[in-house]
Design a protein around this nucleic acid. Structure first.
Length: 475
RNA sequence: CGGGGCGUGGCGCAGCCCGGUUUAGCGCGCUUGGUUUGGGACCAAGAGGUCGCGGGUUCGAAUCCCGCCGCCCCGACCA
């Protein structure tokens, strides 16, 4: 059993912290709420970036970069936006030892700086659409922080697009939430519910917000990605108009969408176990680690040489041979399990004789002897297997923990056990959602796209509602 | 912002109540040498500390008193 990791069953929150720290993904920094992302964590982020960036580009987007500093007045130009973000902004008041004429906000999100720029870029319908993404850091002065899930500064990507019509912006908003869904499921092996946020939960400044929501092992929901249709709100705030084919001057339609390093927290809480981190193979910075085993120096040379020989033509990013001398094999086994490497390959003197290796998969712990011939192909298939198994496992768990409830008393009794709850709720009425939150610390996570066509009474007010929403306690 | 916890070598902690035998200790880690190596090795010798900061009490403070600062965790708010 892993040393120093709290068991999930004992204290899930502490387990999560233990995993992040002990798997060497991140560490606390001198500043409250900030963290150092260490190579083992950052490597996962790099893989996330790699795949997402490709998906963004495949859907026509290009990358750009906007400044981290935003004049304070910019934030104030969109009424809802400032209301939502002002309280959590970090503000720079001095520069070069002098008081600044206008304070600079460290971006909590970039709509304002970007739309102030788009104003200069857009004058004709021919300038549209603009499909830009940026990889950046942002800063939100949150009361309560948690490693990866909510830190004062975090890394993310934010797409900011400009369109001539509402329909086109809507298409984009939907397209991107589905890009996120696909990424979550195919790469993170994390099943999600796709849907729309309620009026209360939508982005500050958005017309509406789509999102993906995932269910963690402890039954709490994690908002994993959002895609906002901003309507003409920011175009109006920054006076961004274009002349259309019909010669009319019109405001531009906007979308924005983002995912953050929070996804790493999602990976931890979806797949990992009491032995440590479990990384889905497609996001693993290191998919395969070789642990050579020897007794004598002579054996050591033979075994390590064999390992090098087998892997001679392999992609160096695919594997590593752990020939560290100061640790025994048992230590290495535990160490790599803790760090979540999907496959460990043990190779010892016996294996060299038999022309075999022992492959151990991280998801199940299952060991199998594999021939050295065609090993690369075997391992690739095994990685696919692991990826699929992780998804299937998570999907099963999400299914098992998705409940349909109609009675509010029953809901109140069961909500603390966690899970997605499919309920009728009059979310158009803000008071209903407020009461739900007050009574149960749960919220409407989303109004699912694929909700069956049902009708029923709101479990709180009894008012007839169309379609069930997903409610849950959330991170 | 409420509640709790904690600040002592790199990390985790003990010592504090009851001031002085403590030259501030233990485990891990680190360095050197040797033996080990198929599920977290062992022996030996070493290196490493302004006890969060500032006052005060005292012959004497990690320890008592006052003040301050910081971080973490749990809740309310949020990606």
């Amino acid at each position: 059993m892993a040393k120093g990791i709290t068991k999930r069953a004992d204290d899930y929150a502490q387990w999560y912290i233990d995993i992040v720290l002990k798997a060497d993904m991140a560490d606390y920094s001198p500043v409250k709420g900030c963290m150092v992302i260490k190579p083992n964590g950052y490597g996962i982020w790099e893989r996330i970036q790699q795949h997402l960036d490709r998906m963004f580009k495949e859907t026509g987007h290009v990358n750009a970069y906007f400044p981290v500093f935003i004049p304070e007045s910019f934030l104030k130009k969109e009424a809802e936006h400032v209301k939502g973000f002002a309280p959590e902004c970090a503000v720079v008041t001095h520069g070069g030892g002098k008081l600044l004429e206008e304070p600079l906000v460290i971006r909590p999100t970039s709509e304002t700086i970007i739309w102030s720029t788009y104003k200069n870029w857009i004058s004709s319908y021919r300038d549209l659409p603009i499909l830009i993404n940026q990889w950046a850091n942002v800063c939100r002065w949150e009361m309560r922080t948690r490693l990866f899930l909510r830190t004062t500064e975090f890394l993310w990507q934010e797409g900011h697009t400009a369109h001539a019509t509402h329909e086109e912006a809507e298409e984009e908003t939907v397209r991107m939430v589905h890009v996120y869904r696909r990424f979550a499921e195919e790469y993170m092996a994390m099943p999600v519910v796709v849907g729309r946020k309620t009026e209360q939960e939508k982005f500050a400044g958005a017309e509406h917000t789509y999102c993906i929501e995932a269910l963690m092992q402890d039954g709490k929901a994690l908002q994993a990605g959002t895609s906002h249709h901003l309507g003409q709100n920011f175009a109006k705030a920054f006076d961004v108009k274009f002349q259309d084919r019909d010669k009319e001057l019109k405001y531009v339609y906007a979308t924005s969408w983002g995912v953050s390093t929070r996804l790493i927290g999602g990976i931890v809480m979806t797949h990992s176990d009491d032995n440590g981190l479990v990384i889905p193979p497609r996001l693993a910075p290191l998919p395969v680690v070789f642990v050579p085993i020897w007794k004598s120096d002579a054996e050591r040379d033979v075994v390590c040489e064999k390992a090098r020989e087998i892997t001679r033509d392999w992609d160096p990013l695919f594997y590593r041979i752990d020939d560290r001398d100061q640790y025994k094999p048992g230590y290495k086994f535990n160490d790599w399990e803790l760090k979540g490497v999907p496959i460990r390959v043990e190779i010892g003197p016996r294996d060299v004789q038999n022309n075999t290796v022992v492959a151990v998969r991280r998801d199940t712990g299952e060991k199998q002897a594999l021939s050295m011939d065609g090993l690369r192909e075997h391992l690739t298939r095994l990685l696919d297997d692991i990826q699929n198994n992780l998804f299937a496992r998570a999907e099963q768990r999400t299914r098992d923990n998705t409940h349909t409830v109609d009675d509010y008393e029953e809901y109140k009794a069961r909500i603390d056990q966690g899970g997605f709850f499919r309920v009728f709720l009059d979310h158009a009425n803000p008071e209903v959602e407020a009461k739900l939150q007050e009574d149960t610390r749960s919220t409407v996570r989303c109004i699912p796209f694929d909700a069956p066509d049902e009708e029923g009474p709101c479990m709180i007010t009894g008012k007839l509602c169309k379609g069930r929403v997903i409610a849950a306690q959330a991170y």
